[in-house]
Amino acid sequence: MSQEFTIDDLKRILLEGAGADEGVDLDSDILDTDFEELGYESLALLETGGRIEREYGISFDDDTLAENRTPRALVATVNALLKDAVGV
């Protein structure tokens, strides 16, 4: 059975790697909010991406983080990669 990556996993990793902006509540409905609006610039996403890769044993393409601009998109992409990894 493949491991699942959830929005809660993403929130935990965001907080560990980059913290949270004042005035941003990660526990509100953020699934479709752009990362930039949540206060995460490219470096914060790079750090977050690196932590996800390490923890879940997957690798992103160079443009994975640029293309997945919302938590929903990133969670879906990570789960697709996890599924592929199990399928190999």
Binding site: L15, E16, A18, G19, A20, L43, E47
Partner: peptide
């Protein structure tokens, strides 16, 4: 300081 600044 906000938590956003601590890891960096």
């Amino acid at each position: 300081l906000p938590s956003r600044l601590i890891p960096q």
